[in-house]
Each structure stands twice: as structure tokens, then as C-alpha cells.
């Protein structure tokens, strides 16, 4: 986690992009069905595509990367409701924690009331990185309950991804936000996403390089 020192706390919208970092398997829609339906306002800037578009390859890459987005480490803070979840079985966060307008909790129940700048030793200790938080209320960047396709379209939608105009921009923060890389160093007693960070970034880059097509 500490390997990334370029983190800055410029704006909360960046958060929304973290969303991109984490989602589940293609065709792996959440039980209980879709809770949000992103508007597909995505704009793919052809100039950013570095190789010839290959929708099948892009979709395959995204489906693989989506396993990370949908993993508990990422999706727990990207719920459809305003209550984050915890644990590998997505249990509603104890203590009745809620999102708050800025995604930082409310009153004496803010994220940093408990979550520190680093993980603490021991099972069930609050995990931490600087500025631990959820997506803000106006751009919730929901991961839970979506299909890979819905997630993909949400990531590309500047109205939902914090104003990132291109898929490349949209994935840029995956490289610099410690909240993203935290998923692979989550502290004692927590599982990590099913594929490595390197593999994840490789797939996300492949998705962009192949034209950033979204799975159905």
C-alpha cells in the first residue's frame, strides 16, 4: 500500500473511478437483480485507441478485470444503497455506517472515525489507507448488483465516472490511488481479489487498447 506515494486528496470524484477498479464476472449479475441502470452516455474517443478495435478482445479483458471490481475488497464500498458492506459475504457494515454526502460518513460516524492511514495489526481491526471513503452521494459508482456490461458502461460514462472523458483517463487513477492498491494488501484476515494487481491492470489496459467495448 505504501508503494504508492503519489496519492492526493484533490477531489472526491476520483473516488468514482475507484469504482472502475473493482467489479465481478461477466454474466455474473448480482442476485436480486440490477439495482441501478446506468445511462449509456459513454464517449469513446477513437484517437485514444492505440490498436485496431477488437471488441471481442476488449470484452474478454473487461470480463476478466471485472472479477476485481466485484470482489469484496472493492465492491464493499460500492454498494447500491448508502450502507457500505463488509466481509467476503457483503454483510451490511456494523454500527449502521452510512455514506454521507461526500462519501465520508456522517457526524461522529465518519470513515476516519475508525479507519486510519494504514491497516492495523490483527484480525477485525479497521483496515486503512489515507482518506478511506466511499463514492460521494451524487456519483455513487455502484458495483454491487451489476453485470459486467452495466459496470463497463458506467465506467465509461463521464456523468458517472467523475468526468473522465476517455476510458484511458477513466482507468488512470487505478494506477495512483492507494485505495485501489489497498485491495491487494488489505490487512490481517482479509482475502484479496482473485487476480493480481498487475494482471488486473494488464486486462484494463488491454480493454482500452482494444477499443473499450463493453460486454452485454
Amino acid at each position: 500500500m505504501k508503494r504508492n506515494s503519489t496519492f492526493s486528496n484533490r477531489n472526491a470524484l476520483k473516488l468514482a473511478l475507484i469504482a472502475i477498479a473493482c467489479f465481478a464476472l461477466a454474466g455474473f449479475a448480482w442476485k436480486g437483480g440490477v439495482t441501478i441502470e446506468p445511462v449509456d452516455g459513454s464517449v469513446v474517443n477513437e484517437q485514444t485507441i492505440e490498436t485496431a478495435p477488437n471488441p471481442a478482445a476488449a470484452m474478454a479483458a473487461f470480463n476478466e478485470a471485472a472479477k476485481v471490481f466485484f470482489s469484496a475488497r472493492c465492491a464493499n464500498c460500492h454498494p447500491a444503497s448508502d450502507v457500505p458492506t463488509q466481509g467476503d459475504n457483503f454483510t451490511p457494515h456494523a454500527q449502521g455506517v452510512t455514506r454521507g454526502k461526500e462519501g465520508k460518513g456522517v457526524y461522529g460516524m465518519k470513515c476516519n472515525t475508525c479507519h486510519q492511514d494504514q491497516n492495523l495489526e490483527g484480525d477485525h481491526m479497521p483496515p486503512g489507507v489515507p482518506n478511506w471513503h466511499m463514492p460521494p452521494a451524487d456519483q455513487k459508482m455502484v458495483f454491487q448488483g451489476l453485470t459486467a456490461g452495466q459496470l463497463c458502461r458506467q465506467l465509461k460514462n463521464p456523468k458517472m465516472n467523475g468526468g473522465r472523458k476517455t476510458p484511458k483517463e477513466a482507468i488512470h487513477h487505478l494506477e495512483e490511488d492507494p485505495l485501489v492498491t489497498w485491495a491487494w494488501t488489505p490487512g490481517d484476515g482479509r482475502s484479496v481479489p482473485p487476480i493480481s494487481y498487475e494482471e488486473f491492470m494488464k486486462q484494463m489496459n488491454a480493454w482500452v487498447a482494444n477499443g473499450a467495448a463493453c460486454p452485454e
Binding site: 454500527q95 449502521g96 455506517v97 452510512t98 461522529g108 460516524m109 475508525c114
Partner: peptide, 9 residues
Amino acid sequence: ADIDAAMSG
């Protein structure tokens, strides 16, 4: 509701 959100910790 505010009290619930603030005090359930």
C-alpha cells in the same frame, strides 16, 4: 434517523 446514523457506533 440522524440520531441513528450518528449514534449506532
